[in-house]
Amino acid sequence: MSRVQIAFQDNDESRYIVAAIEQDNTTAVVHYEPAMIRVENEGSLIINRDTVSEQIGMEWDVQSLHINLITLTGHIDEDDDYFKIMWNN
């Protein structure tokens, strides 16, 4: 399995998203780099709307992910309630 990765600007909004990722992807590894938070996982990684909403304490729109996103690798599957990246190998 290849690793997927996603990186966010290091700010307050991102911290909730990363917390949600850690909650839903137990094998994900989080790297804190200058001004950026990079998360890696084997094969795939999912961000669930409900988990992030719970973390933030209000309704979170999946597409607002774009505001703090820096980069990612892998194929994307996006819908109202989740955002997923994965490799098919």
Binding site: A7, Q9, H66, I67, L69, I70, T71, L72, T73, H75
Partner: peptide, 10 residues
């Protein structure tokens, strides 16, 4: 700019 790149990459 990179936040746009994520869209461009896909």
């Amino acid at each position: 700019a990179q936040s746009d790149e994520a869209r461009h990459m896909t």
